[in-house]
Amino acid sequence: GDWGEPAERLDELYRWVESGALATAEWYLTDRVWKRRGARALRLGTAFGVVAGTALPLLDLTGTLSGSAGWGYLSLLLGAACMGCDRYFGLTSGWIRNLATAQAVQRRLQVLQFDWASECVRETLGPSEGTASEAAERCLGVLRRFSEDITELVRSETADWMVEFRAGPAPMGTQALVSGSAGGRAEPGGLPGRFSMPSVAARPNMPRQRPPEAPR
């Protein structure tokens, strides 16, 4: 766009970065749904197989249900198969990793929104230090660091998925994404909407100069 109006261009750039982060979190939250359902179904099958495989031989031993020992062994085999499928296809680890990634993106988006609001307040009250070009460069730096952070999160999650895909059985739990997410929080039911932000158009002292080009 035309950087003769830097306030409008910065606002458009912020909205573009924010919508991209929301779309990323939404994708991970949507992708985790079928994995969570599949993992719970397989875990339920595992629990049922273990219980039935333990109870049926006991009933056969006591004579309550004669000839049920064979079905008990079959139930144990089915329970082990359900557990193996869960670990091989990585359903449990996959939906947990997706949830951790979505929470990490949401947490970093909240930090971005507070940082951007701080810059908006600073420009509304009047720049206290530096020139207008430095203020624009500061805003661009906030957006650039956030974009790089989100890209690194997605790259890390993709690398973990590739390791699981190549190795076969998926390791349980997540790695560095859990530390970046809000640990111990309840699973969100859906993606929160856009947080309220101060109107960028109301910044009378936003820079009117073209921001300096980054060194190549």
Rank of each mutant, 00 (worst) to 15 (best):
D2R: 12
A7R: 15
A7G: 15
L10E: 14
D11E: 15
W16A: 12
V17M: 07
E18K: 11
T24I: 00
A25C: 03
A25Y: 01
W27K: 06
W27Y: 08
Y28R: 01
R32S: 02
A39M: 07
A41W: 05
L42R: 07
G45Y: 03
A47W: 04
L56E: 01
S66C: 05
L74I: 05
A81S: 13
C85R: 07
C85A: 14
D86P: 04
G90L: 05
S93G: 09
G94L: 05
W95I: 03
A102H: 12
L112S: 13
F114P: 02
C120P: 02
T131Y: 00
S133P: 00
A135L: 05
A135V: 06
E137L: 09
G141K: 08
G141N: 12
L153E: 02
S156H: 09
E157K: 07
A159C: 02
A159H: 04
E164S: 05
A167N: 10
A167V: 08
P171G: 07
M172A: 09
Q175K: 13
A176N: 08
L177G: 04
G180H: 10
S181H: 09
A182M: 06
P188W: 05
L191M: 12
S199Q: 13
S199V: 12
V200D: 11
R208M: 06
Q209W: 01
R216W: 02
